[in-house]
Amino acid sequence: MPGGASEAVSWLVYGLLRGLGAAVSWLPPRWARGLAARLAEAFYPWLPAAAGLRDNLAHVLGTSPEDPAAHAAARRALRFLWQNYVDLFQAPRRPPSAWFPAIRILGWEHLLEAHQAGRGVIVVSAHYGPVEWGLQFLGASGLPALAVAEPVRPPPMFDYLCRLRGAHGLRLIPADGALREIFRTLDQGGIVALAIDRDATGSGRVYSFFGEPAWLPDGYAELAARRGVPVVPAFAWREGAGITLRVWPPCWPAGRRAAAREALVAQVLEIFAQVLREAPDQWVLTTPIWRVRR
C-alpha cells in the first residue's frame, strides 16, 4: 500500500477507535464484554487477524491451522481479544476498587522481593489472557513501573492507547526509542515490563518454541545479561468470571555471553509454554510467529 494511502487508513482506524472507545466506555462491563464476544464470533470468518490466531494456536495444539480444533480455539481467542479492548476502553472510568477484587494473585511476593533488592527488575509477559488487567494492576500497585509499548501510527493513536493503559499509574514509552529510559528506570531500581511473544522492533531472533523455529523478541534477555538484573515472568488468565495473575520466581542471567542470553530465553519460553498448554485459547497474539522471516 502506498505511503499516503497507508497513512490515510491509519487515521481512519484512529477515528474509528476513538469513536468506539467513547461508546464502549459508558456501557456496563458485562454488557460490553458480551457484545464484544458476539461481534467477534460474527466477524471471525472475515478477519485477517483470525488467520494469525489460528496459525499460532495450531502450533500449540500440534495440528493444522485448518483443523476444526484450531478454528474453535481461534474463535475463543478472538472473543477474548475483543473483550480485552473493552477492558482497555473502560479503564479510565473503572477505579481500581472495581478492577481488582476479582483478581486472584499468586506469587506477588516474588516481584516484591526482586524489587526490594534495588537492582531493577524486568517483568515479562505476553499477549495472553486479560492483558489489560495485568497492566492496570501493575500501574496501581505503587511500584515504579515502566511498560514498553509497540509504536503505532498515527502518533495521536499511540498517545491515546498509552493514556488508556496508563489510567492507573503505569508509564509507557514506545519500543523504537526506549533504551535510555529503560536504563534509567533499571538503574533507579524500577520495573520494566516487556513482551516475549511479539517482536515490535524487528530485532528478534529465531528460537525453538514447541519444537519448531519461531521468530521471537529476546531484548529482555540481552538487557538482563547486560545489566545483571532478574527477569520475572508474569501471566494472567481468565477463570470463569474471575482473573488469576501469577508471578513466577526470578530468572537470573548466567553471565553476559550469548549462551547466557539464549539459556535465559529458553527458561522463560518454557514457563510460557506451560501456561499455553493449560489454556491455549487465551493466547490472543495475531502475529504468526512461526512464519519465520528470512
Score class of each variant (00 low, 15 high):
Ser6Gly: 03
Tyr14Met: 10
Leu16Cys: 10
Pro28Phe: 09
Ala36Thr: 14
Ala37Tyr: 06
Ala37Glu: 14
Arg38Gln: 15
Leu39Glu: 11
Phe43Tyr: 11
Ala50Pro: 00
Val60Thr: 09
Ala69Pro: 00
Ala69Gln: 11
Gln83Ser: 07
Val86Gln: 13
Phe89Arg: 08
Pro95His: 09
Trp99Arg: 06
Pro101Tyr: 14
Pro101Phe: 13
Ala102Met: 11
Glu109Ile: 01
His110Val: 03
Gln116Asp: 12
Gly118Tyr: 06
Arg119Ala: 10
Val121Tyr: 14
Ile122Met: 04
Gly139Val: 07
Ala140Arg: 02
Ala149Met: 14
Ala149Phe: 15
Glu150Cys: 00
Arg153Pro: 04
Arg153Cys: 03
Pro155Arg: 07
Pro156Met: 04
Met157Leu: 15
Tyr160Arg: 01
Leu161Tyr: 04
Cys162Ile: 10
Arg163Asn: 07
Leu164Ala: 10
Leu164Cys: 10
Gly169Thr: 06
Leu170Pro: 12
Asp176Gln: 09
Ala178Pro: 00
Glu181Gln: 15
Thr185Ile: 04
Asp197Met: 05
Ala200Ile: 05
Thr201Ala: 12
Val206Thr: 15
Phe209Asn: 05
Glu212Cys: 07
Tyr220Phe: 15
Arg226Lys: 15
Phe235Met: 04
Phe235Ala: 02
Ala236Val: 12
Arg238Pro: 05
Thr244Tyr: 03
Thr244Gly: 01
Arg246Ile: 03
Arg246Leu: 06
Trp248Arg: 02
Trp248Gly: 03
Ala258Trp: 09
Arg261Ala: 11
Leu264Asp: 04
Leu264Asn: 02
Ala266Asp: 07
Gln267Ser: 14
Val268His: 06
Val268Arg: 01
Glu270Arg: 15
Ala273Met: 10
Gln274Phe: 04
Leu276Pro: 09
Leu276His: 12
Leu276Tyr: 10
Glu278Trp: 13
Glu278Ala: 14
Pro280Leu: 13
Asp281His: 15
Arg293Phe: 07
